[in-house]
Computed example of a mutant assay.
Amino acid sequence: MGTIQYGAGTEPVHIEDRALAHLKVVIATKLRRNESFTLSWKHAEGDPVGRSTIWLHPSIPLRFTFDDVEAPQLNLKWIEQLMHTAGSTAGIQLVDEVLETPAE
């Protein structure tokens, strides 16, 4: 289980490593463009039940921490879907992974 630490003195956000690796790509892309946006997710098991949203801004410190030593192979379809949500007024929604289906 990875974490996002955002700003000073805030509780870390717990997100599964694979999902966090994909989110990192999308978040870094938006921040590199100097864009502010929201990120919403359902709370992880063990955290209080519910969902949260944070406002991300390029000037606020951000750290991604992963439990896995090796980075996973990225799923471009999932990144595309996350980028699509990033462009909406609702901001980035942590959606389930889009799996590649083999061509028949």
Rank of each mutant, 00 (worst) to 15 (best):
P61I: 06
T29A: 15
L20D: 01
G87D: 15
K77E: 15
K30G: 12
I79Y: 01
P102Q: 15
R51M: 11
W55H: 11
I27E: 05
V69S: 03
V95D: 05
T65D: 12
S52G: 13
V49E: 14
P61F: 13
Q73D: 08
L99S: 12
F64R: 02
F37K: 00
Q81L: 10
Q73F: 01
K77G: 12
L56E: 07
L56D: 05
P72M: 01
A19E: 08
D67E: 11
D47Q: 14
R32P: 02
G2H: 00
K24Y: 08
D17Y: 00
A90P: 03
T89A: 10
V26Q: 00
I92L: 02
H57N: 12
G46M: 03
F64K: 01
S88I: 10
T29V: 09
L20V: 03
I60L: 08
S52Y: 09
A8N: 05
L62N: 08
N34R: 13
G50F: 09
L82K: 02
R18S: 06
L23F: 09
H43L: 12
V26G: 00
L94W: 03
T38E: 08
D67P: 04
T85E: 06
I15G: 00
S59D: 15
G87K: 10
A44D: 09
V26A: 01
Q93F: 11
L94R: 07
H84M: 08
A103P: 01
P61V: 06
L31N: 04
E97H: 05
T10F: 04
L31C: 11
L74T: 06
R63C: 07
E11R: 05
I79S: 00
L23E: 11
R63T: 08
F66M: 01
L94G: 01
K24H: 12
P58N: 13
T3L: 01
A21V: 04
H14Y: 11
D17G: 03
L74I: 08
G91T: 11
R32D: 09
H43C: 15
D67I: 05
K24E: 15
E104R: 14
L23C: 12
K42P: 09
S59N: 14
F37D: 02
E104A: 14
A8L: 06
A28I: 08
T3E: 04
L39E: 02
D96M: 14
T10V: 05
P48D: 14
R32G: 09
I92G: 00
W55S: 07
L31M: 10
Q81V: 09
W55F: 15
Q93E: 15
E45P: 10
G91F: 04
L56A: 09
R32M: 13
L76R: 14
A103S: 11
T29R: 07
H84K: 15
L23W: 08
V69C: 01
D68F: 04
A103I: 14
F64M: 05
T38R: 03
W78V: 01
V98A: 12
K77L: 15
M83G: 04
A21Q: 05
H43W: 08
T38C: 07
H84D: 10
E104C: 10
K30M: 13
E70R: 13
I60R: 08
